[in-house]
Design a protein around this nucleic acid. Sequence first.
DNA 1: GTAGGAGCCTGAAACGTTTCGCCAAAGGGG
DNA 2: CCCCTTTGGCGAAACGTTTCAGGCTCCTAC
Lengths: 340, 340
Amino acid sequence: MVATYKDIRRLTGLSLATISKYYNGGNVLEPNRELIEKAAADLDYQLNNVARGLRSRRSMTVGVILDELDSAFNTTIVSRMEERLREAGYGTIICDSRKDAEAQADVMRFLVGKMVDGIIVVPVDDDASFLVPARDRGVPVVAVDRLVPGTDSVIIDNRAAIASAVQLLTTAGHTSIGLLAGPDSTYTMRERRAGFRDAVQDRTGLLPRTELIEPEHVSIEGGCAGVRRLLRLSAPPTAVVCANYGFTLGATIALNELGPESRPALVGFDNMDLARLIRPRPTLVAQPIEDLAIEAAELLLQRLNGDGPDEPVTITLDTTLMIGHESTYQLRPVPSNGRL
Amino acid sequence: MVATYKDIRRLTGLSLATISKYYNGGNVLEPNRELIEKAAADLDYQLNNVARGLRSRRSMTVGVILDELDSAFNTTIVSRMEERLREAGYGTIICDSRKDAEAQADVMRFLVGKMVDGIIVVPVDDDASFLVPARDRGVPVVAVDRLVPGTDSVIIDNRAAIASAVQLLTTAGHTSIGLLAGPDSTYTMRERRAGFRDAVQDRTGLLPRTELIEPEHVSIEGGCAGVRRLLRLSAPPTAVVCANYGFTLGATIALNELGPESRPALVGFDNMDLARLIRPRPTLVAQPIEDLAIEAAELLLQRLNGDGPDEPVTITLDTTLMIGHESTYQLRPVPSNGRL
DNA sequence: GTAGGAGCCTGAAACGTTTCGCCAAAGGGG
DNA sequence: CCCCTTTGGCGAAACGTTTCAGGCTCCTAC
């Protein structure tokens, strides 16, 4: 059998209350402290956190719901969060909603049933009804990479991110810029698309041609297909902006098949391993992914300690434009015009 | 307040024992079943798994310890495991040991204290002493990608994997093959290196020249530096085998800087997203990573149900050699000899 | 000398389930 | 008709902690 307080009581003669006080950092006389430590060592005692959780109503566990697990973005998120949360004594239960709203609602109930103290979530879409079980039970929720009204959110400035890409391209002389973005149903894509429209209008005085905005599934395949479609237009864009990492990978694959002379300029999203592999060095909008994770963990920890702000809070982080090899963003001199 | 069995008892007049039986799939008369379901719905009742775990001594939680979280290999592992385990009703607590033995021992104690029912681990090194807390408490452990004597393990046939790469290269005429591998302190690297030596000896009748085996830190940087060092040798190899994904990426980056004419043949490891990015299409040893995860989860679930084999078991999975563009493995006709 | 407080300890009652032993009623075979 | 088994239900005792309301000792200040 595994040792419990009762065994420690047997060996030390102290009461359960005192032993509990010891394990919770209360004041215990030095000789008693030593007695307990000796007994615990002899018994190879390990505190039972399940029992503790039942009585104290804190499971010291948080749930993390991601819309997909095997993406580089979310991996980084998990890695940093887990690190920060365990530092604070919390275990991290990870759940994958596979971009499926129903699965997301399921895991939410699952986590609430597991009595997690808090939840961090990258929501599947704008429908926040899956949060109800958590709200009902007063479990704090922090949304990451999505703005969820009425809920703490940690996001990046998506509009400015895309605007910085557009600005680089227009400064280089591009006037016809395409965008690869996912469906408007996710906050991130909606913002990036709106940011694109605004930036293009700002910089060129014109609304972007609608056929240059490719609505796609968010994936490598979507990036491949999308960029090919853009280039088949009768007046193809001279530059393409990718609204996320998957599109960037896909577009890069598709462009690999073109001769370097006929490639459009390309600004991608997210600075991950990819960037080091691809030649010429790509131009990228870099998100502070680690900070996103750390800020979210920090905000949740504040809530768990009961000392966060009164109102739901939105933390917005800035992106960095990482300028790559100039061939990736310059407007090619004449010939491509000549050919059109 | 959150509802409990007592509230259901109040609404239904049934005893706690009956309500418990209902929630554990026991036989309950139809009218009582309906009563309970109605009451639960009215109360928005959610079973408290912490209390359940305390009494039943099953927390329905498993711990997963990875040697690093933000690698594509481990991401895939986590993703599949989490899926399979949650299907079976288990929550997955994830921990990152950051390739640090002490951190690994810490999280092991952390998980045992959290009363996880089982643990899946990709161990940092060969020192299995960190398993003691789990063994002492009868918590089953499954090791993944490492052979841990006396413990259930799910691995791939590392020797055969490397041998298949060597065979392809020798068949194509290569006689001087280099290897990029990590330190012998991890099982995987030791096996792959031994497999390399054996295969080269088998196929060429000679032991590989020792300077062709580059001991390196396992990383993209290591791959870059290693391949550069190999090529600076007075008699550089005509082909290089990479013993893992990081090396493959790094070697690819380094080779990108060479003209296509002077590149050695390259066989990489692991078929992940980036393999689709690289042109010409690389030749790769593909591990069944998802199966690794699923087999491990399955084996642990067996142990948790108490119906696994009596003895610790080792499951070995096979790899597939994915042959890429022929320029990636063919021996280049004459000039490279001429130049040497 | 004593009131009051600080410091440390204690027994007992939670926390919300599961499980054990027992009982009543119903059903079936001889 | 009786005995035996099966089914479903019940009260009460766990599970291993934390927490509550006191209680004892010792010290200080008046």
